[in-house]
Amino acid sequence: MEAAPKVIVMGGSWGGIQASLSVLQNLPETYSIPIILVLHRLRNQEGSLQEVFDKKLALKAVEIEEKEALRPGYVYLAPANYHVLLEKDHTFSLDVSELENYSRPAIDVTFTSAADVFSENTIGILLSGASKDGSSGLKYIFEKRGMAIVQEPEEAEVDTMPLAAIAMVPGCFILDTERIKAFLLSLHDR
């Protein structure tokens, strides 16, 4: 990857909350690359992921709002029951179209959208999960010359999602959460 990454998109489902917290926990509040996190959640689930992430991270965790601009130092959380897309002007668009891979938000939708906007400056990270969502989006990032990272399946709480991604994106990096965290820290502009 020649150019500096401009966005990190991360996805997971079953086991993804814990895995993403592990990856993001030591990143500084001034982290130089915006992070978008898409986690499968129950459509009628009450309670705020934002509160969970805000308590445990130095980064500011916010639930994505329509037309919100992408900024460094933030973890943007996909809201329940909305697909999240990135626009060319680096703002978010929320969409309530059909479920994709039985999910809304679908990881594939956000990964593909980020790669369309940032191409080789996109880093896609797929974590623990019990579906195949995210695999084709990660492949799309890789085809656009972005970086594809998959959580080590043996470490994942549920390995279905990582194994599906590895099968679809043979050129991906397979790392445990400690190595993903170390890699992300190495990208930070100090």
Rank of each mutant, 00 (worst) to 15 (best):
A19D: 11
G16F: 03
Y76F: 14
K144M: 09
E2G: 09
L21A: 11
D89I: 02
V109Y: 00
E46D: 14
V169S: 13
Y102L: 12
I141W: 03
A115E: 02
L59D: 01
A182T: 08
E143F: 04
P153I: 01
L37M: 09
V96Q: 15
A165R: 03
K144H: 14
L37Q: 03
D108P: 02
K139Q: 14
V52N: 04
K56R: 14
A3H: 10
T122E: 12
W14H: 11
R104Q: 04
N121S: 14
S22Q: 15
S32T: 09
K60Y: 05
L94D: 06
S128P: 10
A3I: 04
K6H: 09
V52C: 07
K132V: 14
S128F: 12
P72M: 05
I166V: 12
N44H: 12
G16I: 05
E29Q: 02
T177A: 15
W14T: 13
K67C: 04
N26C: 02
P79Q: 10
D176W: 02
L99A: 11
D95A: 00
K56L: 13
D159N: 12
E120W: 02
R145P: 00
D159A: 15
V109C: 06
A114Q: 06
R41Q: 15
A80L: 01
L77I: 03
R179E: 15
F53C: 05
I17Q: 08
G134D: 10
R71C: 04
S103D: 02
K139R: 15
A80F: 03
V84N: 03
G16M: 06
L86R: 00
T112E: 12
I180T: 06
A106L: 06
L57M: 03
V75C: 11
G15D: 10
V84K: 01
A78D: 02
